[in-house]
Write a protein that binds this DNA or RNA. Structure first.
Lengths: 288, 288
DNA sequence: TAGGCAAAGTTGTAGGACGACTTACGTCAT
DNA sequence: ATGACGTAAGTCGTCCTACAACTTTGCCTA
């Protein structure tokens, strides 16, 4: 019986040196004791109606199960109810539940054992901000319990460079919005973000909103939802990247160089995010 | 219809500056034309007997489909045969095929569209060495078409440090094998690997083999199969890491700091892999 | 010619059934 | 009392059949 303690949170700033408060308290119960995930008997179908309406039924179930696991409703290492129970609970077929659980398993969140049951991975709740999960930086920061903010350093339209045209599948010389911003968490700079967005399908008002709010929110309003991103990782050491009073001394960054695609496979944004080494902790769950 | 050209391979060395030879040639056929994935009619069940016997049936099917996609049997963007056809082809039920496809979908390899079909992701074949895929470095190098080799720089047993004990769930002061090696691809150094392995369950002969062959192969022989790894990513700039004649000038590395777990969730190796920036290209597919 | 409708094909979900595997427990011989 | 063994219950893995939901194609009609 492993008693390995979760050693690190996903997000880290210099201000929080002691990792004590982030240690997850375990429910004191036998390690393999089944945990009733729900008090009421058969009343979780309704939970799927509200905001998680998008996607197939199995994805909704997966999303709901996921959020319940994340909120600690089932402690790491403990067993989930059987597939049949969950199916009855949600009012769906066992096939749907199995599809949902397969999804969670491939994300490393749960561990399915033939003949035994489905168990919450021991570090499942630790990696919820893993890179492979596609979400905006500010969203990630907020979920970590910090207050995100951004400061626009530059925001102008210009012709796309050759590299940018190639990645964004543009005609040479097409106009793009060049957005340079600093990302803060609780007032401390954690990253410098360089976004390049084709202006073709945007009007002036949207361009203005891009600079101040969440870029993704603006995209949502015109029906573009990010579905995938293809990213490269690099280590960078340079004094030419950062700016401002909080500019880090050593100039060491982890670069996330990525192209965002919508659900139709069309690229709609090219962004380089330079994360200040040591301020933002990247965690990856690798599975077979 | 996107004509985005694959811009980058997964693996890169200085010697191959022109990316020409790595451009994947597409089968000249209508973008959405179904492609017969098999010539013979119902003879793929036998293909599952040979070496891919491990794991559940759906995992075997997934593995086989994956390898066929990787080998370019179906061009990116093209449609796979219907689930029913595949089921007949492999001699399994449609449920099993669906489970397998769900797995591939969660890995970003294919794109399932309700009522339309299952399509190979446009960059699916590009990311086969993505970090989230758990395999050894040498294995990855070999699959990229290079010849991997290793040079042992150090290999001694000593007491575990405090950090190592914590990550490997050891008693303080327990003995570990400290392995320091340089990883080469076609004779060029691409990474410096620092592995720490508890010697508790190993005998002298195995310790010797660890230093010269694949560490994972030795673990296989004693029934330990890597199932998951929890990794952190960091940018590192230091002159203290590398050695030898090919020691990189700038001392800039991408550090993959990870603990390996077996299928029972027990940690069995702690390794820090310093990849020389620019030599090894990390690609991540991010999905929602 | 443009629009709409129908049909065919494909994936998503349902329900029931059985096999394979794991675990717990009781029995029996030592 | 103890250990080995067998049994039974619980759970996941796979199969079968059927139908619903969705997409695409192409024909038909106005």
């Amino acid at each position: 019986m492993s008693t390995r303690t979760p050693t690190s949170g996903v997000f880290d700033t210099k201000t929080r040196s002691a990792t004590g408060p982030r240690v997850r308290n375990r429910v004191e119960v036998g390690d393999d004791a089944p945990v009733s995930i729900s008090d009421r008997s058969t009343a979780n179908r309704s939970a799927l109606n509200a905001p998680s309406k998008s996607g197939s039924l199995s994805r909704q179930v997966a999303r709901h199960l996921r959020s319940r696991i994340m909120q600690g409703e089932v402690s790491p290492g403990a067993r989930l109810p059987s597939e049949t129970e969950i199916a009855v609970d949600y009012g769906v077929s066992r096939v749907t539940v199995r599809t949902a659980i397969t999804l969670l398993e491939s994300q490393g969140l749960v561990d399915v054992r033939h003949g035994s049951g489905t168990f919450v991975s021991d570090f499942g709740t630790e990696i919820k901000a893993g890179i492979q999960e596609l979400r905006s930086i500010t969203e990630t920061i907020r979920e970590m319990g910090f207050t995100p903010s951004m400061e626009r350093h530059k925001g102008e339209t210009r012709a796309a460079s050759e590299q940018e045209s190639k990645r964004l599948d543009l005609m040479p010389g097409e106009q793009v919005l060049d957005l340079q911003r600093a990302v803060y968490a609780d007032g401390e700079v954690v990253a410098y973000s360089f976004d390049v967005i084709p202006t073709k399908t945007l009007d002036a008002q949207m361009l203005e909103r891009m600079g101040h709010g969440s870029v993704f929110e603006v995209f949502e309003t015109i029906g573009i939802t990010p579905a995938r991103a293809m990213a490269e990782l690099h280590a960078v050491s340079s004094q030419e990247i950062a700016w401002g009073p909080q500019k880090p001394e050593q100039g060491l960054f982890l670069l996330l160089d990525q192209v965002h695609f919508d659900k139709d496979g069309k690229p709609f944004m090219y962004s380089k995010s330079y994360f200040v080494e040591g301020r933002f902790q990247f965690v990856i769950l690798r599975t077979r």
